[in-house]
Design a protein around this nucleic acid. Structure first.
Length: 280
DNA sequence: GGTGCCCTGTGG
DNA sequence: CCACAGGGCACC
């Protein structure tokens, strides 16, 4: 479900509702949702602990607890986080419920059951959940054209696959890779080695810009977030190509094309993102 | 690098 | 009924 803008949206909504709260009760109804080897220790280490932060790294959320434990969460395709009053009926597929000292519940629901929680003890390395394999944050200084060119500039993989590779840059998924490549006019199927220096420059500037833009477009109040049960936090009207296959390109009116690139359904404009556009 | 798989829901 | 879905991993 969520890519960087949506995870950041969740962080901004959920963070203020859990930070400072003490955990009273942890209920795990789907043991596979907890990747920590022992569900028992997951529950006992969290109980009576206190959330003191909520940070994002790529598509991961990381909450530090007052004793130094860190709760790491990944939504994968369909995971949802919601803070709700116990009177609000739980969402279908609610796998983890964390009751807090203000009477509210932090709930994790996930129909496809791909999402995971990890819990690491004080001082323990959190890398094993996949965080250690992440490339730079798109907003960091180290994410620049020199880096991107040296990292993928000789790769035969498509540019779409490369920017979706979390070890190249953290946070981009299938939707925003299409949106970004449309924005910069680059054919998603081009091999990364074929990009010019200028195109790497444009791409490294556009990626943080668009991710920031979509994060702002996703902004909702906590009440709106709760009303939509934490699900509809992506403001789809702002997507220009994803979900618009067959419709006219917003720039040139040519019909947008959908085909599989790197195993993922991809939408692009065959004219605005034509292979040779940047060569001229 | 490709492929299958983890799961359930939805739409054609 | 089948194809496909916003992610990521293990395994040839």
């Amino acid at each position: 479900m969520p890519e960087l803008p949506e995870i950041e949206t969740i962080r901004r909504i959920i963070g203020p509702l859990i930070i400072g709260r003490r955990i009273r009760l942890v209920d795990v109804t789907q043991p596979k949702a907890v990747a920590t080897p022992c569900t028992e220790s997951f529950i006992s280490m969290l109980t009576e602990n206190r959330f003191i932060g909520l940070e994002r790294r790529g598509k991961f959320l990381i909450s530090e607890l007052e004793d130094g434990c860190r709760l790491v969460m990944h939504m994968r395709m369909t995971g949802c986080l919601l803070v709700a009053h116990p009177d609000v009926p739980p969402e279908p597929h609610t796998h983890i419920t964390i009751s807090m000292d203000d009477g509210m519940e932090l709930r994790f629901s996930d129909s496809r059951r791909f999402g995971r929680f990890w819990l690491y003890g004080p001082g323990e390395d959190i890398g094993a959940c996949g965080i250690s394999r992440l490339g730079p944050e798109p907003f960091s200084m180290s994410f620049n054209a020199d880096y991107l060119k040296s990292r993928i500039g000789r790769s035969g993989r498509t540019i779409k696959e490369c920017i979706m590779d979390q070890s190249v840059v953290a946070g981009i998924g299938n939707i925003y890779s299409d949106e970004i490549l449309f924005d910069v006019g680059i054919d998603p199927s081009r091999p990364a080695y074929s990009l010019t220096r200028d195109e790497f420059e444009i791409l490294t500037r556009d990626i943080p810009e668009k991710l920031e833009y979509f994060t702002e477009m996703n902004a909702v109040t906590p009440d709106e977030y709760l009303e939509t049960k934490g699900r509809d936090y992506r403001n789809t009207p702002y997507l220009r190509v994803y979900g618009h296959a067959g419709e006219p390109c917003p720039i040139c009116r040519t019909a947008l094309v959908k085909r599989t690139i790197g195993g993922r359904g991809s939408v692009y404009c065959p004219k605005c993102q034509s292979r040779h556009r940047a060569d001229t």
